[in-house]
Design a binder for these strands. Structure first.
Lengths: 195, 195, 195, 195
DNA sequence: GATGAATGAGGTTTCATTCAT
DNA sequence: AATGAATGAAACCTCATTCAT
């Protein structure tokens, strides 16, 4: 039973989002002009304004779609017991989200200064903070807390910093996840390896 | 009495670099205009062009100063035996460099998309790659390699991602370094902790 | 017969070309700013950029329109027998073209250094060279060749160098043409007048 | 009147004039900046201002030197009988002047629009007008007058329009002069050649 | 005889945005 | 659903020029 899809209703809108994200990721947000987006789509700039109120709104609409799963993940994790298993499952799911929308998250990563001042900045920051809070225990040692944060950033960095390294992408992703899982495990059980 | 219009000192060039870096870090490179920099210094835009050929050139001159120590570190490490101790000493020194010019490195971190297309992008990338190559062993397991990369990124992230966490800055920095040292240690001794 | 079907544009584009040529001819290309052109038209500078990509592009578009007849003339003459009559007919037609767009050709004449570096320079030079080749015979005496070139330049000079001389413009134009026709006639029949 | 030449006194001044003329001729007056001139000489812009009051002044000083012979020629011719022989001698001398400072006269030719608005414009125009008046007879036929003007312009054009034609430069120059001499001869003796 | 530092004016170009159609 | 025409603001940059040293 295929959904009787609304004909071409969302088509242009989606194509704008797609092209915009592509260019934002390639060149950065500020260096991508609406003219450029319009040209790639073979429409006029004014057409963009039929679908979106502002340039920022294009990005917001993308973020609304792609960052939602992170918020859901936080909600989910908030309802689970704060066990190591929960935390690790959280990381696994986060890994799926990140790789499922890697173009977007890479964009966020590479345009922090820009995104910070945009309206999406706040919510992205909150997401990150939410994940963080669920992973780390505020009463644990500073080192332990750092390990948790690092687990998160390892995954972010993993999306784009591994291009120099040879190997199967899936294998790399698995390795990144493993290191992250490890870090939260060590944060929990302080039988340190350090001498 | 009226203070005579003192001619600006010789340090204008330095002051430009300083203000520019401050604003670049605060607002991002593209969102910082030369007009703004000039106004902060109480000079005209044209004065900036007396000291620097282009806007990009201002950034280049800053990077030349501040990124040089990283290149030196790479040279130094290249001349040492590839032991764990060398790697860890490298991380310690890198930590010093990073925190000694944190404003600059935070700028780089938050403006990757921009920096990538600028002339400094290449050399910064090379630096990172150089550090990376010295830390990780291409023949070791993927996981081990990821640990090394993560050690590096943990330090980068540590510069700005810890502002949410309470605690003494020095203590935080030490914790970050400890986690990084740990990661390379684990990369070397594959007696995994993972379940 | 073939009507060049331009989509119905407002005449703004044409008005820009007209005002621009007027000012270029009056003051020179470099000394005419886009601000000035815009003010004459009571539009903003940005409006110019809606119609033309660059300042140079305005001139190019003018040249494309006004220099085309010369290219056509060359094509026509290329298909005729290389007789004296052909050459003289060529000069007659060239005279019509020159006087029909005298503002443009005077501009070219007075801004050679500028035009040379612009993209239209090459094609204008080719036009002149084409006319030249059709007039002169490479095997004839140097003097004969010079006479042909002079015929051409006499007409160019005639457009603007006669303003000091009194007399009816049409009469002047006819006189210039007569001298030019004479020169190619003499080039052909070397029964020299020179004492 | 011969000034005993101060040793290196004028050296820089002359070098500025030389480089300036070279660049003016190559690129045009407006497109040549003082920075460029200074760089070619390995001095600072400010040094130029020690020797010349303004940019225009550099050009004026060049013109004063190089256009003076034309004024002298006019004076000389004014004192001679208005015979054909005088006119032809005038052309011969003018040819010498033109080719003796061809870089300058080519510059004038290619930058008319610019030169017109500069202070030298007036005197150059007067020179040309003076030569013209001495050649042509205001009572003669329009055609005869055009022939005289053409004689002058043939020589101007000859300086740069002959580069496409093969042949010894001196031979070309002689041919140009011959045609010019011819033209004034024909202007005098109205037994037309035209068919 | 020349420099270093700076300025004020102005240049071309790009941008996000608007609005009548 | 989209276009054509236009705008206002601002960007980067260059220029001729000045002046204390």
């Amino acid at each position: 039973m295929a959904t009787p899809h609304q004909p071409r209703r969302n088509d242009t809108r989606r194509r704008i989002q797609d092209v915009a994200l592509e260019l934002f990721a390639q060149q950065g947000y500020e260096k991508t002009s609406l003219r450029e987006i319009a040209e790639h789509l073979d429409v006029t700039k004014a057409a963009l304004y039929y679908h979106f109120k502002t340039k920022e709104d294009i990005l917001v609409s993308i973020a609304d779609d792609l960052a939602a799963p992170v918020a859901e993940l936080i909600t989910w994790a908030g309802g689970q017991p704060r066990t190591l298993e929960t935390k690790q499952e959280m990381l696994r799911r986060y890994s799926d989200i990140l790789w499922g929308a890697s173009r977007f998250f890479r964009f966020i990563q590479e345009n922090q200064a820009t995104v910070r001042d945009l309206s999406i900045g706040e919510s992205l920051k909150n997401n990150l903070h939410g994940l963080n809070s669920l992973l780390r225990d505020e009463d644990s040692s500073m080192t332990a807390q750092v390990r948790c944060i690092t687990a998160l950033f390892a995954m972010h960095a993993g999306m784009f910093a591994m291009q120099n390294i040879e190997g199967d992408p899936e294998e790399k992703r698995a390795a990144v996840l493993e290191v992250a899982l490890d870090l939260v495990a060590q944060a929990e059980a302080p039988s340190a390896v350090t001498g």
